[in-house]
Design a protein around this nucleic acid. Structure first.
Lengths: 207, 207
DNA sequence: GGGTGTGAAGCCGTTCACAGCA
DNA sequence: TGCTGTGAACGGCTTCACACCC
């Protein structure tokens, strides 16, 4: 059974908070405490846990480690997720470093760019390849997801190569929305939109 | 009247597509064409325009420039939005450059960090100040929004300074969720969560 | 016919209210 | 009493269906 999007997002967040708790020596946590860490309600937390079929046998709250592992068993794929990043500008470099500095199941293992000054070099810890080799390299390295962090005006040209290479998931940080056929998962997250949204609701809040 | 969140996001996206159209010499656009650019339905577009009270008098589609201006009149604040960024690591630099390279109403006009090697220097085009001066500088520069791009473990310490400085909007790229009292708008956008979400739905799609 | 504007219906996610259990 | 698990109600967003207009 597939979980709702929002629940998946929150589970990812819970897991990280739970890891913090475990590091801090906390062994059990109540739903309202976990909720408080995320600015949501306790019911919401319990509903999410209900959806993944988790329940606690004790009344001392949820066992932090057990719950974290349970969430991992839901979220993580048994096969490792190999990720490539397209566009090694500032944003691409930042995302790559940010990611690979963490201890995650997900790893960015290759970068692609069109700039000859970048191709062939190791940038932010990963080898940067020419975009012309994209399809071949995806096959060789068994890459199944890509992060797109190119300039807006070239993002559209990536759609076909990504489809042809057999990529299954795309995380797009470009302000150009990318559309793929059914079967390819896309998340478009444009920083400009996020900030414009905050600005709008700030304005409305002051009315 | 305040618009739904989703509508605000889409309006921001429509506006950028419309600017592209205008640049490309397109003067009119049908709802289904605009929808196609964003991978959504024409009804959705028309519903959004209905919510902001926009309607076209002609049947040649919407006038691109008129619609773009109308959206701007809804989204943009009459007073300029002055933004600060906290945390001038790779992500902070990338976001700052990304932003200020664009021709937006929103500008990042100051940066803050605790690293003495960064304080006093101009980074990514903006002056980097010591975090200790945050509250004072916010007042001096009339800053009303902040972007947070610090490491996860220090993000929590920013909540009080941000409240005390009178900040009204926060865009948080940290993986630590930030909670503020009513009246302060927050958007938490964690890159790790985004990618884990894509990975989850890729996994589910293959079942 | 092809496109727009919109009430009504449907769907999805959140919250309420409460039963059950230590 | 205090917390968990959950059916049922609620609310917000999307889609349907259709009237209207060139």
């Amino acid at each position: 059974m597939t979980l709702p999007e929002k629940t998946v997002e929150r589970l990812s967040e819970y897991r990280r908070s739970l890891a913090d708790c475990a590091d801090g020596g906390i062994t059990h946590i109540f739903s309202h405490v976990l909720a408080g860490l995320h600015g949501i309600t306790a019911v919401q937390v319990r509903r999410d846990l209900m959806l993944i079929g988790f329940s606690s046998d004790t009344k001392k709250g949820y066992d932090v480690r057990v719950l974290a592992d349970f969430i991992s068993s839901i979220l993580d794929s048994p096969v490792p997720a190999n990720i490539a990043i397209i566009g090694m500008g500032h944003l691409g470099r930042a995302i790559t470093k940010y990611f690979n500095s963490k201890d995650l199941k997900l790893k960015i293992i290759a970068a692609f760019d069109v700039d000859p000054a970048k191709v062939g070099r190791e940038i932010a810890g990963v080898e940067c390849h020419d975009m012309g080799c994209f399809e071949r390299m995806v096959g060789e390295l068994d890459i199944n997801m890509v992060v797109v962090s190119t300039p807006r005006d070239v993002a559209g040209e990536l759609v076909l190569p990504i489809i042809n290479a057999g990529i299954k998931g795309v995380l797009n940080f470009t302000s150009r929305p990318l559309n793929f056929p059914r079967g390819i998962v896309v998340e478009n997250h444009d920083i400009t939109t996020m900030l414009e949204k905050v600005a709008y609701f700030v304005k409305e809040g002051e009315e």
